[in-house]
Design a protein around this nucleic acid. Sequence first.
DNA 1: TTGACAAATTATAACGTTTTAATTTATAAA
DNA 2: TTTATAAATTAAAACGTTATAATTTGTCAA
Lengths: 343, 343
Amino acid sequence: MKTTVQDVARRAGVSAGTVSNALTGKRHVAEATHRRILDAMEELGYQPNLMARGLVNQRSHVLSIVIKEFSDLGYYGYSSVLTGIQRKANQLGYSIMLHFVDGPSEEEIFATLNQVSAHRADGVLWVIHEIEGNRNWVRDIHPEKYPPIVFLHMHPDPALSVVSIDNQAGANMAVSHLIEQGCRTIGIITGPLDWWESQARLAGWKNALQQAGLDADSSLVVEGDWLADSGKTGMETLLDRRPDLDAVFASNDRMALGALHTARRRGLSIPEDLLLVGYDNTPEGASYWPPLTSVRQGLLQSGQIAVEDLHQRIESEINEQTAPRQHIIQPELIIRQSSMRSR
Amino acid sequence: MKTTVQDVARRAGVSAGTVSNALTGKRHVAEATHRRILDAMEELGYQPNLMARGLVNQRSHVLSIVIKEFSDLGYYGYSSVLTGIQRKANQLGYSIMLHFVDGPSEEEIFATLNQVSAHRADGVLWVIHEIEGNRNWVRDIHPEKYPPIVFLHMHPDPALSVVSIDNQAGANMAVSHLIEQGCRTIGIITGPLDWWESQARLAGWKNALQQAGLDADSSLVVEGDWLADSGKTGMETLLDRRPDLDAVFASNDRMALGALHTARRRGLSIPEDLLLVGYDNTPEGASYWPPLTSVRQGLLQSGQIAVEDLHQRIESEINEQTAPRQHIIQPELIIRQSSMRSR
DNA sequence: TTGACAAATTATAACGTTTTAATTTATAAA
DNA sequence: TTTATAAATTAAAACGTTATAATTTGTCAA
């Protein structure tokens, strides 16, 4: 835990500089010496000190991920993104530091950002959902007081680097599919409406209905909070309000699960009496009864793209700033029995 | 991103040492100077460089979490533990670095450990499940080549610091509860049997049956892989083998979901025809149909305890090594309708 | 042999902190 | 006033690397 480059040098009978050269491979060192150095390292169990290295190189090779705490990590979406991030980061030689935020309130955001910056992370991946003022605080951040930041799952913004998923298209697909199945009265259980994802999915629903000349009445809309319970009550409300309801689009799989629960409790069969589509395509969905049709988001991919973009940004920063880029990923509909009209 | 303690010092008209004193609060600095320094920091937007600080203090205030990659993060259990870890770590002033492992093969384990040690993490939280040789490699690690390590969810071992959950007791509770409900032929869907958790839960099942003088025949045991699909097929097998089956204990909620699926497909009602208990108490379980009885593990708590123990270990290391400690957490049964005999 | 030139190595100065020991400044007693 | 003592500040060294510029060593042609 504490043999240093000096120790290795002494043991190999060379200077510290040579050991460093052997280590980084930037300057050439003679075959024989190289071998001796390697041996010395082996014998002494040398571990380079990344803090010292980072200090002189002005480069930590650490990427900071900022994520909202608690429930989020257990949520399928976030963990997929993280996995995608991890893979690419690893491949590019970065380590990952995790920062949690509760609020996110303005002050907490800046506190976190300061911590990130104190660690001298090379870049930041912002995986906090966007609500209200959020976007504006974050737009003001950019100054070179902080390392480059890539925002995941925010809606596109020319001033920021964003990797996001086309939520409106995803919802549109889902609802269009229901329409093709012959449904006419399609309810939606949305996420919290201060999330832009929720808004976008709602817009997709509306859009699909209008394209087909169908009713997008507000009695068909009920707001949930992403959790299964709100799917239960959402479904209750929809059924009470619209006895003619023949399909429901739930804005995530958890709420779809809740909707299934309520349908079952009320003695309704899916897909016989009612069709249902979820969002996220969680692995469990395939084991619900009936197996759940859902929208696959490509979250793993989004994590990877984000890291790639960030990496470019980090590398280029030395010369001139790379302009912000927007990456928009298209989702895909996975059809299972919950939305297949059995005639 | 690059004003230094020197800059602040210059601006405040003092020396670097004084700024440092003001920063750490270890030596007293006069009221007036202190104020001037604070102002200077504010004006210059000073951010301490944690790498430099870590270098001189020989303390990074970073905790490394080693976790098996991919699916694991999305798994309820792991994310809960991580949350628990994060909370306590934050409270004690640590940042968190995440390291992923695929295998885990011996070489990969050591590669990861070397990385951890290169970052000079103050301590390690080992959240890899234990299989086969695993334990032995890990026992040999301890030498002071690496920082102190606490192992989560390994079975107790006097040579190692371990925080684990009493899986056998948990399973025993679940099965005893089924027996109390009047069940006599209770099947089990286990996890992969090279996981000690699976073994322990199996032992708990067996134990409870034997206590009650009931049959723990091998025809009642089927091995799963934690995923819902294996719950589906596991349930098929059990039903085929034992037409007299009147309850099933699934070793996690996902597999319980699969079991529900199969029961439903075969036209069996739960709890009317068959009782079912899961393990993990995932939030979704309450929305399954019927709501799932399950074993709550106290994972959040386990994460917190692990960090506390690790912290002590880190602090004390300066003097003499603290002896390894075993923490065993008792789980709790959460009863819902899937296991309530309706008579 | 001696140069001339390339290749390999080294000494030294950073990087941004904190700590130690030394020094200055303030305070109180004589 | 002085002196003794406490309080506040500072200069310099250290932490473990890498980069730069200087030096040594080796090779080959003249």
